[in-house]
Design a protein around this nucleic acid. Structure first.
Length: 270
DNA sequence: CATACTTCTACGCGCCTATA
DNA sequence: TATAGGCGCGTAGAAGTATG
């Protein structure tokens, strides 16, 4: 097995993932290639500017590298090998999931879908909600999340806590044992620390570290909701971006409704 | 018991934000 | 403007469970 750090392959296509907060994240679909012992068929492209700056075109031969032998990335296109059939990539103007017009805010590199009812956003926000750093609901990975949504068992975050064993047991590949384990995991997650609950909400720029600082200062959701921009800014490692992001989140009626509904189900209190 | 399928975990670099 | 550090990215392999 050769130790190849960089490899050349063909950029077959550029796809778009919709993130939990509606961001449109581009990724490269590659002709599978061995990069230092690993077959790589996909690599992140970060954002619209990254594609434009590198002038990556669909059909290009591209250099793929695994940074630290872990995460693959497209580092360059091989311009000399173009034959004229390569197609420049136009970043989508509508969300690939809900077809709503997307926006790119001044000074931001991220293009986002603002439709709060976007199906892709719902799916990704639930995946994030149940993930390890957030509510840590074991046995509820992306696949199960999709099945639950497809079967109309989940239409929003609070719905997760209404799931019953009998709802789950009828699903494909879900038996008594899995259903029991999932319901138990969901119930256990109700007592996750405030910081993890905050992360679970999916507030842009708010990760576990910043959330821990907020949780430490405010202790309860009702205090945080009342927190002013200045108070947030006074906290270590909370700058204008994160502060504004938090203010924006709690200024949104729909978000407040979600938080209240969760609290009433015994989720994320204390 | 064998097979199929899903989830979980580790990995470490570099974009982006916070801060001086 | 420069430096520090949080955060998320894609893949393989292990661990676990469902099903026949």
């Amino acid at each position: 097995k050769f130790a190849v750090r960089k490899s050349k392959t063909k950029l077959l296509d550029i796809g778009i993932n919709v993130g939990p907060t509606g961001s449109l994240n581009p990724y490269a679909v590659l002709l599978p290639v061995d990069v230092n012992g690993v077959m790589v068929k996909r690599a992140t492209l970060h954002n619209e500017d990254y594609i434009n700056t590198k002038d990556l075109r669909i059909g290009d031969q591209v250099i793929v590298e695994r940074a630290g032998d872990v995460i693959p990335k497209v580092v360059d296109s091989v311009v000399e090998e173009r034959n004229g059939s390569e197609i420049p990539f136009k970043f989508p103007s509508v969300c690939p999931s809900c077809l709503y017009k997307v926006v790119r805010l001044e000074g931001e590199s991220t293009v986002i879908c603002l439709n709060v009812s976007c199906p892709a956003r719902l799916e990704r926000s639930i995946e994030h909600f149940v993930s390890k750093v957030a509510m840590d609901i074991q046995g509820m990975g992306p696949r199960i999340v999709r099945i639950l949504i497809e079967n109309n068992l989940i239409n929003n975050l609070p719905d997760i806590f209404q799931l019953k064993i009998n709802d789950l047991i009828i699903l494909d590949g879900m038996g008594q044992k899995k259903a029991e384990n999932l319901v138990k995991a969901i119930n256990d997650s109700k007592t996750r620390p405030f910081s993890n609950f905050l992360v679970a909400l999916g507030i842009p720029y708010l990760g576990i570290e910043s959330a821990a600082i907020l949780a430490n200062h405010f202790a309860y959701m009702e205090n945080l909701v009342k927190g002013t921009h200045d108070e947030l800014l006074s906290l270590p490692s909370i700058g204008d971006k994160i502060a504004q992001s938090i203010i924006d989140y709690f200024a949104n009626e729909s978000n407040l409704g979600t938080v209240n509904a969760l609290n009433e189900l015994g989720v994320g209190i204390g």
